[in-house]
Amino acid sequence: MAAITPVETLIDRLSAGLRENIEAGTLHDPLMVGIHSGGVWVAERLHAKLGLSEPLGKLNIAFYRDDFTHIGLHPQVSPSSLPFDIEGRDIVLVDDVLYTGRTIRAAMNELFDFGRPARVLLAVLYARNGRELPIQADLVGESLTLGRHEHIHLHGPDPLTVTIEQSVED
């Protein structure tokens, strides 16, 4: 197992990338939306570091998953909440791990049910191999190449730590 960069370092990296975009004018007065649950933890830190004025949005994509008939419906601890109007706004969508791309597809579908943003930018702590959809992140903390049985697990919310675990199945 490869040594992993501390999570806080990656968050600093993402935060710096977002700040650059804001200063360059390519990201205008953004709203931040984290995907439940790991993405929300990462987004909370980014939101604080950037000092965004509007509250953090949270997406729980359980109602938008394409595998809901396989895994069943679990009562969610926290439903989606976007305490702002996303119409015409720049959105920074934040998740912990970008893997197959299915979560991001579901998140974008849900996002558009709240309105029509001007731009959506994707920031992830980790991007790993194994994409099943044509989705890429705009900002990546760290890219990892992992085996099919290896999975990144973010533990949080405080402190944020990461482990790479082997799945026993398949």
């Binding site: 729980n60 359980a62 109602f63 938008y64 809901f68 419906l73 009562p75 969610q76 439903p79 989606s80 909440s81 976007l82 579908n109 849900e110 558009f112 049910d113 709240f114 309105g115």
Partner: peptide, 17 residues
């Protein structure tokens, strides 16, 4: 049901389940 309550507040009052 508690989670579905929030669906009513959005612009598109639908989820694709």
């Amino acid at each position: 049901a508690e989670n579905f309550m929030s669906v009513t507040d959005r612009e598109v009052k639908k989820v694709p389940l």
